[in-house]
Simulated scan of single mutants.
Amino acid sequence: MQKFYKVFLVVFIVFIAINLYAINWQSDILADEENLKFVFSIACAVIGLILLFVMNTWSKIGKKK
């Protein structure tokens, strides 16, 4: 994995960790408007992680040819 991808991997993991810490677990996760913004942020970070691994895989395929 290139250094560029590693930096974004750390950034996305930190975003997920901060948002998991910020969620109020005592109230309903999806019904509370305050928690909903953290859930959306976590979802975006997970999508970013998936795209990161797809781009890393594509870069490895390009090097073999």
Rank of each mutant, 00 (worst) to 15 (best):
M1Y: 13
M1D: 10
M1L: 12
Q2D: 10
Q2N: 11
Q2L: 06
Q2P: 07
K3R: 15
K3Q: 12
K3V: 12
F4I: 05
F4R: 11
F4E: 13
F4N: 05
Y5R: 08
Y5V: 03
K6S: 08
K6A: 10
K6L: 08
V7P: 00
V7N: 04
F8C: 03
F8N: 02
L9V: 02
L9C: 11
L9H: 07
L9A: 11
V10W: 03
V10S: 11
V11A: 14
V11M: 13
V11E: 06
F12C: 02
F12R: 00
F12N: 03
F12W: 07
F12G: 00
V14R: 04
V14I: 14
V14N: 04
V14C: 05
I16S: 00
I16Q: 00
A17E: 07
A17G: 10
I18E: 05
I18R: 09
I18K: 11
I18M: 10
I18N: 04
N19I: 02
N19Q: 08
L20V: 12
L20P: 01
L20N: 04
Y21V: 13
Y21T: 04
Y21F: 08
Y21P: 00
Y21L: 11
A22T: 10
A22I: 15
I23V: 15
I23W: 00
I23M: 15
N24P: 07
N24W: 06
W25H: 09
W25K: 15
Q26M: 10
Q26L: 15
D28H: 13
D28F: 15
D28K: 05
I29V: 12
I29H: 01
L30C: 06
L30K: 10
A31K: 09
A31L: 15
D32P: 00
D32N: 09
D32R: 04
E34P: 01
E34D: 06
N35I: 03
N35G: 09
N35A: 11
L36E: 02
L36G: 02
K37G: 06
V39H: 02
F40N: 13
F40R: 09
S41E: 04
I42N: 01
I42H: 02
A43C: 12
A43Q: 03
C44G: 03
C44N: 04
C44R: 07
A45P: 00
V46D: 03
V46K: 06
I47A: 05
I47K: 05
L49Y: 00
L49P: 00
L49D: 01
L49F: 04
L49V: 05
I50C: 08
I50F: 05
I50S: 07
L51D: 07
L51F: 11
L52I: 11
L52K: 05
L52C: 11
F53T: 14
F53G: 09
V54G: 01
M55F: 14
M55C: 13
M55Y: 09
M55L: 13
N56W: 14
N56T: 12
T57K: 15
T57V: 07
W58G: 12
W58A: 03
S59A: 01
K60R: 14
K60S: 12
I61C: 08
I61P: 02
G62S: 14
G62M: 02
G62H: 10
G62Q: 05
K63I: 02
K63G: 12
K63M: 03
K65R: 15
